[in-house]
Each structure stands twice: as C-alpha cells, then as structure tokens.
C-alpha cells in the first residue's frame, strides 16, 4: 500500500470509511418497527462488541455452518427485530458491520477453535488452492506464490483479511470481503461464489485462520 493510502486509513478525520461507521453508530440505537434496536439487547457497542468481529466467521448452530458477521446482523434483524434481512452489500448492512468491526480495531484476529468448524476450514483451504476460471488460477498462485509482486501496477497482498469491511478506492465506497473475493473470481474469469453461500463461508473461514493473530485494522482503506 502506498504511504498516501496508509495515511488515509490511519487518520479517522480523513478515513472515508468513518462516514459509514458514523451511520452504523446511528443505526445501532435506531428501533425497528417492533421497538427493538441493537442497543436494546447489546447496550453499548464499544463494550459489548469489543473483539466480536475478530472472531468471525463463527459457527451458527441453526444453519450448522460458519456465518459471516453480516449474516449474524441479519439473523438478529429477523429473529429479534422482526425486520427483513438486508441484501448483501446494502449500505446499512455495511455501516452496521463497520461500526461493529471498529470495536475490534487493534485486537488480534481470533477465530473460534470450534471442532465443528474444521470441515469447513478444510474445504476452504481446498477452494483456496483450486485452480479456477478461464485463466486457470488459484488464490494461492497469486497470494502465496507471488505476494509483493505487482498485478497491473497494484501490489499483490498475502490474502489476510484484517480490515473488512473496507473502503476500496477502486469501488469509491465500502464493500465486504465477499465482494472482494467475487472480484478476484471474476478477474480470473470464473463463476464467483454466491453471496452468503456455504462455499463463501468455507473460504472465509480458511482466510480468517490464515490471519489469526494479526491485528484488526477495520475499517481499512485499500487501493
């Protein structure tokens, strides 16, 4: 990342992602039609959500698979607020997620060592190493074999999702890790995994494990 992009992320008065965080903060205590807000159950987010985002994707006992933080927010909406789930990449959803993720800033990424997760982790690793698309490339071929080199002028990172949701300069807005993964997949001319699919959860579970121990820097700015 260029010094300019790093500076943009480090200073909250310049980081455009903070606009979404501020929205998320307002939504946190905004009651749904049934009168319930996030705050009704979880009180103060800086206390109750501290470290939470760093543990996602987490195992969901109902669907019996790992779910992403945005899916958890939607489950709360459905089960506690009698509200309809927000579609993937909805601005309100990204705002809520950014606000929750901010409460883990600087903390170590710590995925649950849940036995039930291991099969998903294994399949995620397989996805990561599987060559796909017309370009016949796997995630590993760029992110494990060639990190630090450049792809069309942009440095290839090591695929550690520490800062999602991110403000991506190319998007000129916020987006989730799922959107980023789908970009990569269409980039190699493959059919992207669907949003909130089991395959996506598997890949995200594997990526989170790879980043375990690294500091969260959400909401991050990336080129």
């Amino acid at each position: 990342m260029s010094p300019a992009t790093q500076a943009m992320q480090k200073d909250d008065t310049q980081n455009p992602a903070m606009l979404w965080v501020k929205d998320g903060e307002a939504l946190w205590s905004k009651p749904a039609a049934n009168g319930k807000s996030c705050a009704s159950c979880h009180n103060d987010a800086p206390k109750s959500m501290k470290g939470i985002a760093a543990t996602y994707p987490a195992f969901d006992t109902q669907s019996r698979r790992p779910i992403h933080l945005s899916e958890r927010i939607n489950l709360c909406r459905k089960n506690k607020q009698d509200a309809s789930p927000l579609p993937p990449e909805h601005q309100d959803l990204l705002s809520m997620e950014s606000y929750v993720a901010l409460q883990s800033r600087g903390m170590s990424i710590a995925p649950h060592r849940d036995k039930r997760m291991s099969e998903f982790f294994t399949r995620g690793e397989k996805h990561y190493k599987q060559r796909i698309g017309q370009l016949d490339l796997s995630c590993a071929q760029c992110h494990d074999d060639n990190p630090g080199k450049r792809l069309a002028g942009t440095p290839i990172p090591q695929a550690h999702p520490t800062g999602y949701p991110i403000y991506r300069l190319e998007w000129q807005g916020m987006g989730s890790l799922q959107r980023r993964i789908r970009n990569c997949m269409s980039g190699v001319r493959a059919e992207p995994f669907a949003f909130n699919s089991t395959e996506m959860a598997e890949l995200e579970t594997y990526l989170a494990s790879r980043a375990a121990g690294m500091a969260m820097d959400a909401p991050a700015v990336r080129p």
């Binding site: 008065t13 903070m18 606009l19 979404w20 501020k22 929205d23 000129q172």
Partner: peptide, 28 residues
C-alpha cells in the same frame, strides 16, 4: 448524507486552526 467535521473545540484567539470536512457523496 453523513458528514464528518473536524474543528478543534477550543482555540486561542488569533490561532490558525485547521478545518476538515468529509461528506458522503458519489461525485458521479
């Protein structure tokens, strides 16, 4: 639109202060 305004809440008379404003807008 959401806006973020950064103005020092306190200043000395005659001091030059920096004002920063950030606003949510697509600038299409």
């Amino acid at each position: 639109a959401r806006a973020l305004i950064t103005v020092p809440p306190n200043a000395k008379r005659g001091e030059v202060i920096e004002v920063r404003v950030l606003i949510q807008h697509p600038m299409e």
